[in-house]
């Protein structure tokens, strides 16, 4: 067996050259691309980790926000309930006040209507009274109609204080006549009797003028220059009407 030293040497050199060639054209490029890929994977992993951390942070924020929303919702519900309760109380109070006002108004209206009805009834009653008095007056004989009223006038004059009688007497002294207004015309004799008895009651003999006013219904009125003495149903009804606040239609 022969061993060629040159071949051994050349093969050694060849192998060394081959190591350099493969290192230059094979190992280094492949390892570089593997390293770049690993760096890229590591970078993407880091980015993914960062994104994951960011997402977790956002998730935590969302959880906190959701918790805040829940708390705010509960608070809003409580506030709304309180406001509703308060509004209901206000409305209830307002409704109570409105109801009370309506009730008062209704009561006032009812009282006014009742008052109006009362006045109307009173007026009707007075009218009825006046009508009855007028009918009764018509049933009384004409000679008695004035006599009764003359009797009453005389009594009233006699009950007046002397000073007032004197004042009345002074008013009809001289040219001033006493005007006697009756509801029905007086016969001549009745007029004379009225003149005499009035003179006796007054203590003087004034001039007397007679007038007729059917509105008096019954009775008479003594018209002095400065005073009027009324002794008629009209005046009575007027007094009643004044008491009840109603105008009495004496006619």
């Amino acid at each position: 067996m022969h061993l060629d030293a040159w071949t051994v040497f050349l093969q050694t050199v060849n192998f060394a050259v081959l190591v350099w060639l493969l290192h230059r054209f094979l190992y280094r490029p492949v390892l570089q691309v593997i390293d770049r890929r690993q760096d890229e994977v590591r970078r993407q992993f880091d980015e993914a980790k960062a994104l994951q951390d960011t997402a977790r942070a956002h998730l935590a924020d969302l959880d906190a926000l959701r918790a805040n929303i829940t708390a705010e919702r509960e608070s809003a519900i409580k506030t709304a309930v309180a406001q509703t309760e308060e509004a209901m109380q206000v409305r209830r109070a307002q409704a109570s006040r409105d109801a009370q006002a309506l009730l008062d108004e209704a009561r006032k209206t009812a009282a006014a209507e009742r008052e109006a009805l009362t006045r109307e009834a009173r007026r009707l009653a007075l009218d009825l009274g006046a009508d009855l008095a007028r009918r009764l007056q018509a049933e009384v004989p004409p000679t008695l109609r004035a006599a009764a009223w003359l009797e009453r006038i005389e009594q009233e004059l006699n009950r007046l204080p002397a000073a007032e009688i004197a004042s009345l007497r002074a008013q009809v002294s001289g040219n001033h006549a006493l005007r006697v207004v009756t509801a029905l015309p007086l016969a001549a004799g009745e007029a004379e009797e009225w003149r005499n008895r009035l003179a006796r009651a007054l203590g003087a003999t004034p001039g007397v003028e007679f007038e007729v006013d059917p509105a008096l219904v019954a009775g008479a009125e003594l018209h002095f220059p400065l005073a009027v003495l009324s002794f008629s149903l009209k005046s009575v009804l007027a007094v009643l009407g004044a008491v009840s606040g109603e105008h009495v239609d004496a006619g």
């Binding site: 060629d4 040159w6 071949t7 093969q11 060849n14 081959l18 493969l22 054209f25």
Partner: peptide, 18 residues
């Protein structure tokens, strides 16, 4: 320097691999 067949074959292999 003798260039033997293994050397030439090795060069061919080197060339092919490179």
């Amino acid at each position: 320097v003798p260039i033997t067949q293994p050397v030439v074959t090795t060069w061919a292999i080197m060339l092919a691999l490179a």
